[in-house]
Design a binder for these strands. Structure first.
Lengths: 340, 340
DNA sequence: GTGAAAGCGCTAACAC
DNA sequence: GTGTTAGCGCTTTCAC
């Protein structure tokens, strides 16, 4: 913290201005001086104090992208982050600060407070918020402060969003079960309020049943928020007890499906013949579980790329863009469902 | 970027010094003025420019912890990060910047360069390097620059380390197979050079064989670096072909074990009776795979906590500590091994 | 080709 | 209680 350009200026018998020029590869310095300065800088192991550099008039633009993650399986976070990073490196002077809200004890209010505070950080070039449902007030505040923001996996009319149509995806999952002959289909889903994903998946599920004239009753929905295998098995048990003729289950996440499948296997329920199962997320493990899990795959990596590209566009044009990009999901058919 | 204390000073008819006092809750301002300033600040939506604040003489201490991750399964990264964050929040003025090197295309040189560059960032309070094997030069540079550093999952005499004894862990895994009756044990392991973990696991494996007077030949080692299921299955195939009587396999990671198990099942090899299997990492998924995977569990979360505590101690005492903390691992016995 | 001086936004002595 | 002023470490005119 002590070594400044002054020291190295003195040591090289030049002015601080000259040192600055050399260190920044500016013109107008004789090769001789340039070398001398460079050498003493090297010798003294001088490193510029970046913040000071950035405080000046000549201040560089804001420099980093902040990502704020809500609750999600870390596999998804990982893939999303991969996508973001790939694109960020193209705008290569940005770094990414990564904030995880589940670290904050899943406390959505803390997340909101945190995001609000982010506005104060004038070094943020842009913000990507993932898996966090914000109210309109916060979003409009962000927009109002011209903090470029892209929402991933939540919808809002007030900001740019990158989403997959979860209603459609869930419709697809449910319809696939119907087409493979399921007559009585249940759904196990979280109702944590922080993201639209869950409610959308319920809606898509219902729509599919209705579209195929299949009776629906609220009994066919089981809510499970903990994502603990034990709890999920319990949820599966309850769902089955309430619906003895159940022959298909949509799990709103693969991780929950694993526990559900385990329960079914323990009860000697044949999968897919007695009960078929579809999950969501298409985790890599799906290939290893038995039977291999049919699941809805969402293009997480691409979503990350898309979000960052959109953000990059805003930053470049220095203008808020309000665009909703909906990406397609697809069903990866494996062994927990019968063939059509 | 425009609104500074000058503007709000002018708007409130006071000096910038007064504004600064109010905004920093300093004494010596009349309630009247304080209120007025606060109100105009609110009205004009002023936020202090943090960097300028930190550039002054009065400069705050360095403010963040940098984590640099090498290659590891994201489950492990997640747990480690959890541990770090839990402790960081106790030193609550620190934030964590999180850097992932696999984003950098697994290029270890880039990681090293990156870490070297980190020295320049005088705002770093401390550095936690995980799953990256650094040469002595870099480490001594870090130390020399008084950049407080803790290494996780790699050893070095030059810096503080938090590790588990992988030789011992692997010995434990191998010995367990021996005790359950395995006579011919192979190991499938990565030989990526970036961490000691792999070589240690080979060493522990060999030691166990020797200790129990079991013949070892290099044929019993199969290297697999890609972590691709297909490649790992191939590795398993090769290992079995070279060692027809093989009745036990140590996989140096659970993820690889999954693929290996899948291969064995495809070949109708009974697990654990024909071939027993032990993995490393104790991923959560182990409960769901069939047969449930026996694995060596390492206390990732605790390692994160320990590393951050150690770093915190250095920062607090403003002094480099060179301490190696070795945590214990344990074997979680499930169904891929026979009972003793 | 080189250096003096101003200024970035902020805080903290120290006058008034 | 309030304002004046110096200074943080750096870059950038603009004279010399």
């Amino acid at each position: 913290m002590k070594l400044t350009i002054h020291e190295i200026a003195k040591a090289s018998n030049v002015s601080i201005a000259t040192v600055s020029k050399v260190l920044n590869n500016r013109e107008g310095v004789s090769e001789q001086v340039r070398l001398k300065v460079l050498q003493t800088a090297e010798r003294l192991e001088y490193y510029p104090y970046i913040k000071a550099r950035e405080t000046g008039l000549f201040r560089k633009k804001a420099k980093y992208i902040a990502e704020v993650f809500g609750n999600a399986h870390h596999s998804l976070i990982y893939e999303l982050e991969q996508g973001i990073s790939q694109v960020v490196s193209k705008y290569n002077y940005y770094e990414v600060k990564h904030f995880l809200s589940h670290i904050e004890e899943r406390n959505i209010d803390k997340v909101k407070l945190f995001i609000n505070n982010l506005r104060r950080d004038q070094d943020i070039a842009g913000l990507i918020i993932l898996f966090v449902k914000l109210n309109d007030k916060i979003i409009s505040d962000l927009v109002h402060h011209k903090l470029f923001t892209v929402l991933v996996n939540t919808r809002s009319d007030l900001a740019s969003c990158v989403i997959v149509d979860n209603i459609k995806s869930s419709y697809m999952a449910t319809e696939y079960l119907i087409k493979t002959g399921c007559k009585k289909i249940g759904i196990i889903v979280s109702d944590a309020e922080n993201i639209d994903v869950w409610s959308d998946r319920i809606e898509g599920y219902k729509k599919a049943l209705i579209a195929h004239s299949i009776k629906f009753s609220p009994d066919q929905i089981e809510y499970e928020n903990t994502f603990e295998p034990y709890q999920t098995k319990l949820a599966t048990k309850l769902l089955l007890e309430r619906n003895p003729k159940l022959d298909g289950i949509v799990f709103a996440s693969d991780w929950q499906a694993y526990a559900g499948i385990q329960y079914l296997k323990e009860k000697k329920v044949a999968i897919p013949d007695d009960v078929s199962v579809v999950g969501f997320d298409d985790l890599k493990f799906n290939e290893f579980i038995h039977p291999r899990l049919t699941s809805i795959k969402q293009p997480m990596e691409v979503m990350g790329q898309t979000a960052m590209n959109l953000l990059g566009e805003m930053i470049k044009k220095d203008k808020i863009i309000r665009r909703t990009i909906t990406l397609e999901s697809n069903i990866v058919v494996r062994e927990t469902t019968r063939t059509i």
